[in-house]
Design a binder for these strands. Structure first.
Lengths: 212, 212
DNA sequence: TAGATTGTTAATCGATTAACAATC
DNA sequence: TAGATTGTTAATCGATTAACAATC
């Protein structure tokens, strides 16, 4: 099936639908069907939107009945590519980086559907290098290229100070990683074939302040 | 001046413009003017968009010259209400919560333009209650309503496990806080007069996986 | 004055919602 | 069969971009 260019917002919503299904504990009922109406309500979007989004990728529903919940969950996992193990790296083993890493590891261990596996941390501090966080080794940033290849790291998380974030990003790009999740509060520049998403707590806080 | 309903995306961009100006270190030149063209380039949006966004709130520019950088910065701070001290609370003094708190405190101490002041943490763990994180006290969640009033907490950050996040949110709402930043990976429901923004790392990671 | 850049209107683009024939 | 709900087309809505007169 030919998939047209998919807007970013649609992907964001697919992730939401998937999480809604996962949280519903649908495995308890093998034969559960869910309508676009109900899925929409639970995810916080309209029924029409749900149908439109899903229709972009195929025909997953049955008229008069709805969507087979378990199948839809599997389909969404496949579309979003979260049905396979994904090795994740993190640069900057500071407070935030450590917290993120532990958080991720915990989810990975507790939830068999959560396949983001922390594979390596990178830092410049000689004090930290060689140590590990719950079994995840800390390597010197100089070894990034080598380790990315060796461990097949597909997503790199950046949690370094803003001042060095661009420099580190360039390194990550050179190491061949095509997807970056950035926590540094600064605008990063990457080549067009690299996908960057920036999560910035201080932007979020400032945004909220407007509504006070 | 009458301000029309402002779309959320515009607020998001205003925050971006403000940060761009702050990062430019414009204080070194009292008389610096910046064009919508340049500001747009630095922030990653078109010049027309910059002008349109700003025009929603007033006329800040000068034809043929551009915007007085320092004045624009002050205007944006006022519009976004980040020109005054804002007391922030956090529920869930776990790993992530602690990391966020320390991160915020550090920024507050280092940057005189960053006015989000961590005022209190809340937790249920008797081990943690009574202790403090870099001077910020940890209170029992039961005292939330009282402490919010006493400390004039305006934004509450939620960093508790997903399982109790809605329950805690209801408490936050009862305590009178009108702006919530949520880190728990779950859809929360709040009354329409409460502003909620959810930052979810696992959603971000899943979204990135699609582009692999 | 000449050149540059704003604020704003009009044109375009894209995304959401409504509606309904098809069909389980 | 009757009722329900899909997939999809058409209508609506909103946001972005282009263009340009006003003016510093």
């Amino acid at each position: 099936m030919r998939i047209p260019r998919v807007p970013n917002v649609v992907i964001r919503r697919l992730v939401l639908y998937l999480r809604t299904l996962v949280d519903m504990d649908i495995r308890s009922d093998e034969n559960l069907f869910i309508s676009s109406q109900e899925l929409g309500e639970r995810a916080g979007v309209t029924a029409a939107q749900v149908r439109k989004d899903l229709a972009l990728f195929g025909e997953f529903g049955k008229q008069g009945v709805g969507y087979h919940a378990l199948s839809l969950m599997r389909e969404l996992q496949a579309i979003l590519k979260v049905d396979r193990d994904i090795a994740v790296g993190l640069v900057g083993a500071g407070e935030l980086g450590m917290a993120m890493t532990r958080y991720n590891i915990r989810r990975y261990n507790q939830n068999p559907d959560y396949l983001f596996r922390m594979a390596a941390l990178f830092d410049i501090d000689p004090e930290k290098i060689g140590k590990d966080v719950e079994g995840v080794p800390i390597f010197p940033v100089q070894e990034m290229e080598e380790r990315v290849r060796e461990l097949n790291i597909q997503i790199m998380t950046i949690a370094v100070p803003a001042a060095v974030a661009q420099e580190i990003t360039d390194m990550v790009v050179r190491s061949g990683v095509k997807a970056i999740l950035n926590f540094a509060p600064i605008k990063l520049t990457v080549p067009s074939d690299v996908h960057l998403y920036s999560a910035d707590v201080s932007l979020d806080l400032q945004q909220l302040a407007y509504y006070l």
